[in-house]
């Protein structure tokens, strides 16, 4: 355990610490000093025991996390027959990619991917922008009713989304541009159009937007005020200050929110089912995988009309569904995991 304190408290490198230890030993160590020997033994023990303990905990838990993904990959690349082959457990005897091509073809994967990218990911990116503006407004400007309005932001975090989903749905069905065109009796139906996803994002009320506003607010509050004052003295208006001075400094907050926003939009099926059920997104395909693939499998020659081992398809489909976000995460994770302290998650 003392190893841990050492690690936290001293910014010395391991080498430097060792040298310091040596020096201290030379100075203090008298032969036969019992207490000191015990101290040394204790220290040596804890510096071995704790890292070992830690290593095994982390190893085990990482295994728990990675196991399903590895299993997914292992299943997705094996021929169907090897699913019920008792000699094949982890490593398939032959690697094929037809499972992927089958799923892509039957589930119309590319179309779904395009829907997801053009509707959900666009909404997610729009939402990052609008919540950033709102968060900045709450962080830096004092105006009447700010506390109350921010209370609404908090409220929007804790209200379960299904509470407002029905009225929202009705509103989108007869969309009057927020009452602007209501006097003329004009309304459009946004239901089943991409706008049902875009509009909430455009007005900073998309999926979990309250949380993002909170993150941005906390982050912008932490930036030094002098930044803006300097910009103001140089003749920058607030909007220009925000875009030219604050945004470039908010990289880590933007990264965090961007990642979460994309992930939550990507994984959403609840809102999508309500507002945009026509658009089959990649995630909407996943629950359909089972019956769609079975019905195809039953028609395959040689299957005898019985679908067997279509697990390989489900695994391939699930893998395809998370693959884009997974790749994005792997690319961004280095910046993400090291930058969380500065991302406004903590006030």
């Amino acid at each position: 355990m003392s190893e841990q304190v050492n690690n936290i408290a001293t910014p010395l490198t391991r080498k430097q610490r060792k040298a310091a230890d040596k020096l201290a030993r030379k100075k203090n160590h008298v032969k036969g000093d019992k207490a000191y020997t015990i101290y040394l033994a204790k220290k040596a023990l804890s510096s071995i025991v704790w890292p070992l303990f830690r290593f095994f905990i982390l190893l085990g838990l990482c295994f728990v996390i990675l196991y399903p993904l590895m299993y997914m990959i292992s299943c997705a690349i094996r021929p169907q027959l090897q699913m019920s082959d008792p000699t094949v457990n982890w490593i398939p005897r032959s690697v094929i990619f037809t499972n992927f091509t089958d799923v892509i073809e039957i589930m119309e994967y590319w179309k779904a991917l395009w829907t997801t990218l053009s509707v959900h990911c666009v909404s997610a990116v729009i939402q990052v922008g609008t919540t950033a503006i709102t968060g900045y407004g709450f962080a830096r400007f004092k105006f009447k009713g700010r506390g109350l309005l921010f209370g609404i932001v908090i409220l929007s975090i804790i209200v379960p989304p299904q509470l407002i989903l029905i009225p929202q749905f009705l509103q989108f069905r007869d969309f009057t541009f927020f009452g602007l065109t209501a006097p003329f009796g004009y309304s459009v139906s946004l239901y089943n159009t991409p706008w049902a996803m875009y509009v909430p994002a455009l007005f900073a009320n998309g999926i979990r937007s309250g949380l993002f506003i909170l993150i941005f607010r906390q982050f912008f509050k932490g930036l030094p005020k002098e930044l803006e004052d300097a910009a103001y003295l140089d003749g920058c208006g607030p909007l220009k200050t925000f875009i030219r001075v604050m945004v470039p400094n908010a990289g880590s907050a933007f990264l965090t929110v961007f990642l979460f926003s994309i992930v939550w939009y990507w994984n959403d099926t609840y809102t999508t089912t309500m507002f945009y059920s026509k658009g089959a997104t990649v995630m909407m395909l996943v629950p359909q995988l089972s019956w769609k693939m079975t019905s195809v499998a039953e028609r395959l020659p040689g299957s005898g009309g019985v679908a067997l081992n279509y697990v390989v398809w489900i695994e391939a489909g699930a893998l395809l569904a998370i693959l884009p976000v997974l790749i994005m995460y792997i690319v961004l994770q280095k910046y993400f995991t090291e930058g969380i302290a500065r991302s406004g998650l903590v006030g």
Binding site: T130, T131, I133, F141, I152, F178, F203, S209
Partner: peptide, 24 residues
Amino acid sequence: KKLYGYGFITIWLIGAIFLFLIPM
């Protein structure tokens, strides 16, 4: 600055009124 504050949150406020408070 006060006015700009309202300016910055307007987008959200419109959304919050029509997509959150009224539905609630």
